[in-house]
Simulated scan of single mutants.
Amino acid sequence: MDLLQLRYFQTVARYEHISRAAEELRIAQPSLSRTIARLEGELGCPLFDRQGRRIRLNAYGAMFLRHVDRALSELEDGRRALGDARDTGLGRVGVASETLLTITHLLGSFRAAYPRADVRLHQSDAEEMERRLRAGEVDFCVASQPLAGPQFDAVELLREEVLLAVPLGHRLDGRERVAIRELVDEPFVTTRPGNWQRTLLDRLFAAEGLTPTLSCEGDEPGATQDMISAGLGIGLIPAMSRRLGTQSLVPVGWVRVDAPDCSRTLSLVWSRDTYLSEAALRFREFTTSRPFMTHRLPDPHHGRR
C-alpha cells in the first residue's frame, strides 16, 4: 500500500460516500473506487459495507482508520517540524472555534504580539472540531462545550452566565428574571444542533419536560443577537456580548434566566500527542497566561483628542 491509498481511504471513510470523496480529492469516481478496492485486496478484507450506491465503514474499516489517522498525523507532524526548522518565522498555528466573534480580539492581540506567526482560523461545530483535532488539521479549539477524547487536554478560559436577549419593547423587556416555563410559547432564534447555544437551549427545556419553539436556526451564533433585535424571536446570548457593548450597536433587552447552570464554559482544547510549532506553543502560553476578557485590541483612538 502507498501513502496516496491511505489518504484516499481516510477521505472516503470520513464521507462514507464515494462521489463526495472523489469531489474533494478532485479525482474521477471510478479511479477512487478502484484504489479502495486494491487497498482492500492488499489487506485481505473489506473495509466498507456496500448497499447499492451507499457505503458504510465496517468494523475492519473503523479499526484500520484509527491506525491510518495516527500514521498520517505523524507524517504531517514531521512535515510541519521540518518546515518550522527551516522557516525564519515561528511556524503556523491553526485554531477552530464555533463562532469567530468569540476569538476575534484574542487572535488580533496575538498577531500584534507575534507578527511572524502564521495564524489560520476555522469555524466549526463541536463534532467538526473533534475531527479536525484528531486529524491534525488544527492545533487548538476554543470550545464552548466538552470535546470527547482521552487524548485531549483542556484549560478553562472563561465561565460566564448566559442571558436571555429579547427585542426592545417585548413583554419581557425590563424583567429582572424569567423562568423557563414562561418561555414555552416564545419563538427562539438559535443555532443548529451541534452548537453550544442549541445544546444549552435544549437542555434547559428538557429539564422542565418541555421543547422550545424555534423560529430560526442558523450556523453563525454571532448573528443571533442581530436577528433578535430585528424582532424574529428571543434567544440565549453569553454575557460577554453585553459586557463588550454590542447592545449599543444591536439593541436588545437582557433578562436573567431562572434556571440552574444557565452558563457556558469556554475552554482551549488540544491533542497532547500532536506536534506543536513554536507559534502554537506561544499561542497556548499567550491565551492561558491572562484572563480571557483582557485579550482585547488597543483602542486606536485612545489618547487622540
Rank of each mutant, 00 (worst) to 15 (best):
H170V: 00
W196D: 00
R284G: 01
Q225M: 15
L276C: 09
L249M: 12
Y275G: 05
L232D: 06
A259S: 05
L297E: 08
L39T: 05
G209I: 08
S215L: 02
S248Q: 15
I18Q: 11
T11F: 00
R20C: 09
A165K: 08
A126N: 07
L147G: 05
F140E: 08
L183Y: 03
E208D: 12
S263T: 06
R272T: 05
T102D: 14
R296H: 10
L157Y: 10
R181W: 10
H302L: 13
H67A: 09
S124G: 03
T294K: 03
D69T: 14
Q51L: 09
P300I: 04
D226R: 15
L101N: 11
V250P: 00
D173P: 02
A280Y: 12
A13C: 01
R56P: 01
L43G: 07
A207Q: 14
Q29H: 14
A62N: 05
L106S: 04
L201C: 07
S73H: 12
F292A: 05
E161R: 11
D77L: 07
L6N: 04
G235P: 11
L72H: 08
D261E: 15
G233W: 06
D49Y: 05
S124M: 11
E23L: 11
D202W: 05
W270N: 03
A207S: 14
